[in-house]
Amino acid sequence: MPQIAQLAATYSSQIFWMLLTFGFVFFVIGLGMVPKVQSTVDARDKKIADDLDAAKASSAAADALEADWRAKENAARSDAQARLAAAKADAAKDREARLAAADAAIGEKLAAAEAQIEAGRGKALGEIEAVAAEAATDIVRRLAGAEVSSDAALQAVKAVI
């Protein structure tokens, strides 16, 4: 086994070169380069975490904005609906009032027309009575030769009609 057979002759060289090469690896690579690699990794991790945080914050802001907009829209919608309802109510009231006014005017006209008709009829009736009484007086005079007063004839006609 060369490890033991050559021990006395080679141990110093082995230890020397081992310390030298491992020293190079430790001081140049381990202490010099590895921290830089790690700082790169840490910087990347930090950047990713920061970006994620920023994205989360933006998302939250967008959500808040959307909620805000929704609330505003809801308010506008309900406001519009209220206005619509008020306008409708106004219109209905207005229409009712106009209808009532028109109704009243029509009623008045109707009543006036009815009264006119009534008056016309009364007058016509009076004229018919007068004509009938005159005719009756005439008929009585011609048939019976009796003279009937116009008042009596009028009474008799009124009783018949």
Partner: peptide, 16 residues
């Protein structure tokens, strides 16, 4: 103390 550059030392350098 002998510090000859041996084949062993060469592979140490190579590994480094």
């Amino acid at each position: 103390y002998n510090i000859a550059f041996t084949n062993s030392a060469m592979w140490m350098v190579l590994a480094a």
